[in-house]
């Protein structure tokens, strides 16, 4: 019985890649106005950055806020800029592939959160319970000759 054989077109005949479509086909990028995404992302990031730096260097001057609150606001500004850059520079777009990458990122961020917060919780309690007191630390430092 004759074998059933399927042939492919020769690879050497492949045309040059269509650059207009390439990022859309491979990465799911939106076809319309990439420029708007990049410019918006850049300006928003700039604003968040400048806001953060201003706040950090003049906390008392601007809002008379306590340090932890300022730290929290800076953290939120960072998160906001993170989200901005994620959506405007990474072009998540629509489609199953984009959703897949998004959820993998979310899962990774969840694990990052667990690792960092878990480590800090554990190390903080260990520090409180197991580390030497400042007086003991001072004594130790004074006795050290080179470790």
């Amino acid at each position: 019985m004759k074998p059933y054989i399927a042939k492919f077109h020769s690879r050497l005949g492949q045309p040059e890649v269509d650059t207009q479509q390439y990022f859309e086909n491979v990465a799911g990028w939106p076809q319309s106005r990439l420029s708007i995404a990049y410019v918006t992302g850049f300006i928003l990031s700039l604003l968040f950055t400048l806001a953060a730096f201003t706040l950090a260097t003049h906390p008392a001057l601007i809002f008379s806020l306590s340090l932890p609150v300022v730290a929290a606001i800076l953290g939120m500004l960072a998160l906001a800029q993170f989200v901005v850059q994620l959506f405007f520079f990474f072009h998540f777009g629509r489609g199953a592939a984009a959703r897949e990458r998004f959820w993998i990122l979310m899962f990774t961020l969840a694990l990052v959160g667990i690792l960092v917060s878990g480590s800090i919780w554990i190390m903080y309690t260990l520090d409180a319970r197991m580390m030497p007191s400042p007086a003991q630390m001072e004594q130790y430092m004074n006795s050290q000759t080179g470790i």
């Binding site: 019985m1 004759k2 074998p3 059933y4 054989i5 399927a6 042939k7 492919f8 690879r11």
Partner: peptide, 10 residues
């Protein structure tokens, strides 16, 4: 399949 089936493979 009963017959051998094959295609170009990269």
């Amino acid at each position: 399949a009963e017959a051998v089936e094959a295609e170009d493979i990269v």
